[in-house]
Write a protein that binds this DNA or RNA. Structure first.
Lengths: 232, 232
DNA sequence: TCAATAGTGTCTGTTAGACATTATGGA
DNA sequence: TCCATAATGTCTAACAGACACTATTGA
């Protein structure tokens, strides 16, 4: 066992993956690389600091992306910390990746404190242009998100305070990667008592207007399901 | 957005949480703190090194714990990287925690390369005596493990190559934290075609001897389950 | 023979998904 | 009037859990 007291000093970066739904797929927030001359697209990143929790640094990046008010109730979770030789834009020895979820139709912050060159990009395209280490973090972030689908709250973090049931179903279909049965979906939702109808309706193009709902979980107990031997 | 190019140097440790089932609960591997005079119990830890993947460092710790041969097919996954002010035995600024799963009845390595003072301790007791940062990693590790229950393979990582179905069910009951129905459990297992019977039987005390099974997944497709609105 | 554990067959209530139907707006 | 989408009711096959039973060992 190597001595834990001897520990070489490394540069540690906090990288942020902000995801939001758009048009049936996921978008990720990319920024223009700061400092360098070339305008390379990168994940928002900031150096870690001694004595400050990594979460704090990540939260600051979220604020820079969407503004202080919006950032307050953003879901944020660490994805992975990656070391090794993979390329990183800031040259960090270790990159700690965080995942944040932005509701549908979230506007990016503007102004002096905002991230330079920030824009939504499809995950598919981002994976093609990001440096290797950040691509690995993006992959890990989307995998983590899909793993959290069963935790009902994350789906609602991808929606504004009020939404239609069709929008909610589309979120689940996006996260699960497959179509769902409408009646069955709504029955399960009814049983879980997670949403509460408002008295507002929204009409989009043709068809009957949809009622708007709000996330308002009533039951606090988890569902006891049977053992499922799913394969990875 | 702070400049990503400026990044202060931090000490980074890799901490290892090895879990194994014993007597209906989980045990974690603790070691005696190296270097210091006091014999404090800590998670096995090693400093991260520039250019070397964190996984490599974690894998080396696993080898020190159980020996090279055993360690080869150990499941290993990163749990979290924690910075901030919480106490860490090696004084690291950032601790990257890894979770490894040891099969039932795993013997610890002995000899010069082994971890000093390594011993299995119940998770309950370990949580009471570990330094704050390592306690947080242990909590995150057990949470991660329970979240992975649906990925059938992790349950089998907690068992030796051959096992009885009662042992397998006990693993699931341990991970899920509740009793399961025997007939239903075996029916689901049958349907998933994950295990294959051997022609060996094991008799333990009274009662009918149990047939030994081997993990041998036949189907590669995942089960398509319905949407479940579980609460956290 | 008794106790204890392994392993299996049958029944029933629940539910996911299929299908069909009504409701209500815009084009 | 069509057409598109929302919302809901009914049916069925699958299945989780309960219960009961047989099988096989050690004490």
């Amino acid at each position: 066992m190597p001595s834990p007291a001897r520990s070489s000093a490394l540069s540690v970066a906090v990288d942020l993956v902000v995801l939001t739904p758009r048009g049936g797929e996921l978008d990720v927030l990319l920024a223009r690389q700061a400092g360098g001359g070339r305008a390379r697209a990168v994940l928002p990143s900031a150096p870690a600091e001694r004595g400050r929790p990594l979460d704090d640094v990540a939260r600051r990046l979220v604020r820079a992306a969407v503004g202080r008010a919006e950032a307050r109730d953003f879901w944020l979770e660490q994805v992975a910390a990656i070391g090794g030789r993979l390329a990183h834009p800031a040259g960090a020895d270790v990159a700690a990746g965080y995942l944040a979820l932005a509701p549908l139709r979230t506007e990016l912050a503007t102004g002096a404190a905002a991230l330079p060159g920030a824009a939504w990009t499809s995950v598919r395209r981002a994976a093609a242009i990001l440096p290797a280490r950040q691509r690995a973090l993006l992959d890990a972030a989307t995998t983590l998100l899909r793993r959290r689908v069963d935790d009902a709250p994350v789906a609602f973090r991808l929606l504004p305070p009020t939404f239609t049931l069709s929008e909610l179903q589309q979120i689940y279909e996006l996260l699960l990667g497959r179509r769902l049965h409408k009646a069955s979906f709504r029955r399960a939702l009814q049983g879980a008592a997670l949403v509460h109808p408002t008295d507002e309706w929204r009409s989009e193009g043709r068809g009957r207007p949809a009622q708007l709902f709000r996330y308002a979980p009533k039951k606090k107990r988890a569902v006891r399901r049977g053992v499922r031997f799913d394969l990875e």
